[in-house]
Amino acid sequence: MTQTVLHIDSSARYQGSTSRSLSAQIVERLGADEVIRRDLASPLPQLTENWINANFTPADDRDAVQRDLLALSDQLVEELKAADTIVIGTPVYNFAVPASLKAWIDLIARVGLTFSYSEAGPKGLLEGKRAIIAVASGGTQFGSDIDFFSGYLRHIMGFVGITDVHFVAADALMADADAAMARANTAIDALAA
């Protein structure tokens, strides 16, 4: 069976980025047949009123300008749909995810494409996928009271239907980098391909 991985990095740093290093190790460990690469260091656009209006216009009624406004979002959704496993490398900036990753989330969380509404509430449409999130933080400990990123990312993944979510955390690197990297490498070694 072929496996497709969507590999997303959101660190603003290219050199010396722990989250980039960890996400690359995870992708290598998975040994995927195909890897779709999305680097968020090149910023994605923020949502605008025109984008929102285009998004809520029925697809058959959209004009060329609206279709153009949604083209990148459509592409990001297709990348997500094509993947069996999503690997996200993210640093922790100011106790949360980088703005670049939040912009990606805003562009892929689309009613009718990645989730739907029902009488029972929202339902994710991307079931059967797995997400592995590599997190690097200087001072924020994973799972602590000031960890505002892991619960958010787990919730967003579940919101679009991805409930098989694993974290590889190199947390509190500034306190003990060697121990943090050892924990992260152990978690990577434990991942099933």
Rank of each mutant, 00 (worst) to 15 (best):
E127H: 07
P58T: 11
T4A: 01
H155N: 04
V65S: 11
K123D: 03
L191I: 14
D39L: 03
A172I: 02
Q141L: 09
Y117W: 15
L40G: 05
M181I: 12
I26E: 04
P122H: 12
A82R: 15
D61G: 00
T186V: 11
V27E: 07
L126Y: 10
V135K: 06
L72K: 10
S118Y: 01
D189P: 00
I86S: 04
L6R: 11
R38Q: 10
A193N: 12
I188Y: 12
D61W: 06
A184I: 13
I156S: 13
P58S: 08
I156N: 06
Y14F: 13
S17D: 08
W51E: 05
P122K: 08
D39W: 03
A82C: 05
A12P: 06
T90R: 07
W104F: 15
L125V: 11
S11V: 01
Q3A: 00
S11F: 03
P91M: 10
G151C: 07
A59I: 13
T186E: 15
A172S: 14
A177R: 11
N53F: 03
A169N: 15
M174A: 13
S116Y: 02
G143T: 08
R13Q: 12
E28P: 00
W51F: 15
Q66W: 01
G16H: 10
E49A: 13
V87L: 13
